[in-house]
């Protein structure tokens, strides 16, 4: 849940990047970190293995500016994508305000994508959240690869609810900010409703 601080006039929200192993969650955060000006970002933390696979989470705090005198701060987290880190994934979803699902567009990863969305739904459910109700966007990453599945196929498979979706090439930054903006907007719109 977001944290509204009237004392420091800040509102803090938590965004989680979810998706199968090696789909590019950490790459999204790294791109945002590298391309955001110093004043708007905090330190990026990566709890990763020696081979740079996310072990627990990556964390990046961002300030987006002010709305009606309140500073909006977003805490971006990634989860470890590999199947056996499920216990850690559950922990990171605690208190989430919005989820970005990063799908790996490669045909070979179709099953991993589907499995990961199912896993997201289950783990959110355990925390009392419904994937069909929370702010949620999908990013189809690795669009530049020759073995990428068609957008239509991916949409049919992963986006029955028709949430906002973006095509991306995360290392080049294509689609990265668009995805972030979309989820931030959805979260603020949800806050406006005063849930």
């Amino acid at each position: 849940m977001s944290f509204i601080n009237y004392s420091s006039r800040e509102i803090n929200c938590k965004i989680v990047y979810y998706g199968p192993g090696l789909c590019g969650k950490t790459t999204n955060l790294q791109y945002i970190y590298a391309n955001t000006n110093q004043a708007a970002k905090g330190k990026m933390i990566s709890l990763a293995t020696e081979t740079e696979r996310t072990l627990f989470f990556d964390f990046l705090p961002l300030s987006l500016g002010e709305i009606r005198g309140f500073k909006t701060r977003f805490h971006l987290y990634t989860v470890p994508g590999q199947v056996f880190y499920d216990a850690s994934r559950k922990l990171i979803l605690k208190g989430v305000d919005g989820v970005v699902f990063v799908a790996d567009s490669q045909i070979e990863r179709t099953e991993a994508n589907v499995e990961s969305v199912e896993n997201l739904r289950t783990n959110l459910g355990e925390q009392g959240y419904d994937l069909d109700k929370i702010p949620y966007v999908i990013q189809y990453n690795k669009r530049d690869l020759p073995n990428a599945a068609s957008l239509e196929e991916l949409q049919n498979l992963l986006n029955p609810r028709g949430v906002p979706h973006f095509e991306a090439v995360a290392p080049k930054g294509e689609g990265v900010y668009e995805t972030l903006k979309a989820i931030a907007k959805l979260i603020l719109t949800e806050l406006k409703k005063g849930t």
């Binding site: 509204i4 509102i11 009606r68 309140f70 907007k185 406006k192």
Partner: peptide, 17 residues
């Protein structure tokens, strides 16, 4: 008790971006 965000408009949100 309400959220301070109850009265923001879509424009406010758009302006942020």
């Amino acid at each position: 008790a309400g959220s301070p965000f109850a009265e923001i408009t879509d424009d406010d949100i758009d302006n942020l971006f």
